[in-house]
Write a protein that binds this DNA or RNA. Structure first.
Length: 273
DNA sequence: ATGGTGGTTCGACCA
């Protein structure tokens, strides 16, 4: 069984004590980090490697930054989302884990304000991601595209859908771009097992969002068919959101079996056992 | 009614 998690840490250096604590408690096999906010030289590499993780990073100063942590060695590292050579933002890293599982850590553009340049950039990024996802699907291998998508796929993923309708995270164009990727053949690892409302991965620092559970579900793990067939469990590990000096995001995780499940554990077949 | 919080970095931008 392999536990794979995605977590927007909002600065890996500011979050290092929480990250190390969480790695020890949750014991994930693969971790996809976003918003590391540091160049590769500033990444706390030794501290993480000393816990037994291999590491691949893509960083830039102040903004963005993504990384992959893995108990097994990493290969085939790709440090940019294809499709725009002029895009210098550190938002995509991809790697082969232990020779059997391919993963990507994705930090999608926020897109606000929607009347500026960042919203079209977000939509172009979604389209580029769809094309890359299609290429990877053709390999017909276990694949996890995880990260902070900055998209609430449906109104059930928003604590106050009416107030958020015009936000770049909820706009129909953003949801359409996300769905276009899912419709290639991906399974949303969290929603496949947890249809309930009130399940979030992000709570704003402001306005007491965390104690009121005024959250959004914007961090996702998308599984290829070969990974979805191995899906055994998934969840949001909301505990670190309640720790001292937290990130505004919580880790989202899934557990993949080493073998294909005899009976799929998805909503569509639940009750059919 | 305008501030809300936090990270990075030292003024302002991003989320």
């Amino acid at each position: 069984m392999a536990k794979i998690a995605t977590w927007n840490v909002n600065s890996v250096r500011a979050r290092l004590p929480n990250l190390l604590r969480w790695l020890g408690e949750a014991a994930p096999d693969v971790v996809l980090l976003q918003e590391t906010k540091t160049v590769c030289d500033g990444f706390p590499r030794l501290e993480i490697e000393s816990l037994g993780y291999h590491l691949a990073t893509l960083g830039q100063k102040t903004y963005n930054g993504v990384a992959i942590l893995s108990r097994e060695p990493l290969a085939d590292v790709v440090r940019a989302l294809p499709g725009d050579p002029d895009d210098g933002q550190a938002r995509y890293i991809e790697a082969l884990v232990g020779g059997t599982l391919r993963v990507a850590s994705i930090y999608l553009p926020n897109g606000n304000p929607t009347d500026g340049e960042s919203f079209p950039y977000k939509l172009r990024f979604l389209d580029r991601l769809r094309r890359r996802a299609g290429e990877l699907l053709r390999r017909e291998e276990p694949l996890v595209l995880g990260g902070d998508y900055n998209v609430c796929p449906t109104d059930d993923d928003v604590f106050a859908p009416g107030e958020w309708a015009g936000d770049a995270l909820c706009r129909p164009e953003s949801r359409r771009g996300f769905r276009a990727i899912v419709h290639l053949g991906f399974t949303d690892a969290l929603r496949a097992l947890h249809p309930e409302k009130g399940l979030y991965s992000f709570w704003d620092y402001q306005g007491g969002a965390w104690p009121r559970n005024h959250g959004l579900r914007i961090d996702h793990l998308l599984l290829s068919p070969q990974a979805a067939d191995r899906l055994r469990d998934s969840g949001v590990d909301s505990a670190p959101r309640g720790w001292e000096r937290p990130s505004d995001h919580a880790p989202v995780w899934c557990a993949l079996a080493d073998q294909v499940s005899p009976v799929p554990r998805t909503c569509a077949t639940e009750g059919g056992r």
